[in-house]
Design a protein around this nucleic acid. Sequence first.
DNA 1: CCCGGCGCAGAAAGCGTTTTCACGCTACAC
DNA 2: GTGTAGCGTGAAAACGCTTTCTGCGCCGGG
Lengths: 353, 353
Amino acid sequence: MRQQPTEGDQVAGRPQERSRTIADVAARAGVSPSTVSRVINGTARVDESLAAKVRAAAAELDYTASPLARSLVLGRTSTVAVVVPDLENPTFHGVLRGLSRAAAREGYHVLVADSAESVAEERILAVETRRRCDGIVLCAPRMPEEELRHLLTQLQPVVLVNREARSSVTPAVSADYRSGLTDLLELLRLQGHRTLLHLAGAPQSSSHQQRLAAVRAFSAEHPEVAVQVVPCGVNFADGHRAADDVVRSAATGVLAFNDLVAMGLMSALSDRGVRVPEDVSVTGFDDIPFARYLTPPLTTASVPVAELGEQAWHRMAELLGSRAPGHAISFRPRLEERGSTGPAPGRRAEAAS
Amino acid sequence: MRQQPTEGDQVAGRPQERSRTIADVAARAGVSPSTVSRVINGTARVDESLAAKVRAAAAELDYTASPLARSLVLGRTSTVAVVVPDLENPTFHGVLRGLSRAAAREGYHVLVADSAESVAEERILAVETRRRCDGIVLCAPRMPEEELRHLLTQLQPVVLVNREARSSVTPAVSADYRSGLTDLLELLRLQGHRTLLHLAGAPQSSSHQQRLAAVRAFSAEHPEVAVQVVPCGVNFADGHRAADDVVRSAATGVLAFNDLVAMGLMSALSDRGVRVPEDVSVTGFDDIPFARYLTPPLTTASVPVAELGEQAWHRMAELLGSRAPGHAISFRPRLEERGSTGPAPGRRAEAAS
DNA sequence: CCCGGCGCAGAAAGCGTTTTCACGCTACAC
DNA sequence: GTGTAGCGTGAAAACGCTTTCTGCGCCGGG
């Protein structure tokens, strides 16, 4: 095959021969492979004189055990996978980063798979990827509940991020989008806004449902405030495009699906001469790193994305250690009131008094 | 060990038994494992009646070959690793995304490792990670040239992103930071700026060196323009902190290390009542997605990060197929002139005439 | 003095594949 | 009718480890 019978394999610049095996070390140390394994893994007592020889031989040959071979026999890979709908989204960056660092601390590696927002892809990808690791973390899977529940059974151990599966024991860590949006709605109400607009995101996403629930509850409690919901999208361009809808709506407060949408919106509003927050107050969601540096700084609900990832790892670690799985946990976003929100127009004097 | 001799392993909600093996399929189809392997991989002719039975059995058992076992015997894992200095940095997001999607298209998986900007970690991580995959992509490694060159020999096959190793055959794909910065310098010069300031980033990074070279060449060619270089940093907070330096310097044009730094700077300048671009022109570098939506939109040199990742994959694919490695390639950033730059103060009337 | 037990090292089995090798069969040419 | 080539299949070796099993030498106790 690749290994031609010719001896001339010594291509210059390829000094890396075939990797050393445990047998090489054993031969050099004059012991059996079993003993080498025992010394390296500290898995049983070995006479100190032999152990020393083994360690010396291993060092000389620069030997480390093949993770592949170990994985095969041990039945674990020390790897977990993360499936995200879109690597471009800062939220998933954060999750990935938090998870990756937490996992690394315990010697685990991270396999990443990007489903590119395709529901069909999502499932295949998860199943396929799952076979190469010990467990899998699903970020905000878009698939329908029923399919998800079925998938979960064949993916064990699995942890969900920003999505819960009802009547399932699968651990889930998520942000409480409902209470986050409620806080934002409440903030705008107290500032005197009576006509609000929510720019909604991916309809299949769990966080979208949570936000709708927040709007419904809020409307029921505060009938004096009108809250309109219009579909929009999840990214910058979507927010930019929504500017006309916003202007037409005559709303004085806009709750964007997330910070990206809010930024796009604010940029487009500025082009049209609409002032934020004097004419319209705008809120985001997530508190991506850029939010506080915008002009004006963006009022938002801060979601600790890295911590989400870190907690997802902890859940996974529990599962891998066959410890008690731990129940679903949810982070309540922190309200970050900044410059993009202010008193409703016409309420200014009133608020100032 | 984990497998207690008790039979009561049927924990509810764990319907996933032990995974099926090729022997199970063989038994069910009434053939030998070799035949199953041949049918599944299409690696040799098999009598159609047997083949059909094998396919049926495989489907019934929902069998797919263990990637681990295949990797061990085949000597390849269908996985590549990416090592980045910081998962938080949007540049590496882009690279990761481009690479991940390109690799996925050819059935490869991606292992990601975050060195957290630690030079010491970087090396260990790379070596360790390398053993679990077929090749490795190093993003902007911070380690010194000598160490890097040594590392490259034991990491083969390896591809470099945003760093070249002199006198090495390692393929490298990078952005041409030198010409990018030259374009920005030139833009500011033509707009009448005569006192410029460059906020420099990670001194060990290759892109830093390239920028310095651009500044030197520019200064030699245009002695009438003063260009000062001050160390700053690579992220938002660094740019924010640099505002005082900028104000003190009396420069009318500031070339930030990257967009993050520029954004932090602009935000801090705005706090101090310094107007951009009326009082100070600011440029970034990279053209991260947010740059165009800032107020004012950021003038920057656009680096196609996703394409960088994609090209890195192509290089890797060539290496993996033992095809000709392809030489180092470098993307020339595209100048994006936006609202954060303008005529130098005092030159306004002149420029308008 | 002999035997059971114990501590340590090597032999060997196994993890789940792929691939070489050997073998039996059919077919065809001589 | 026998030799040979060709084809399809199963047995077995190999990938590089871990772990069980086996055996050897030594100790102490009866």
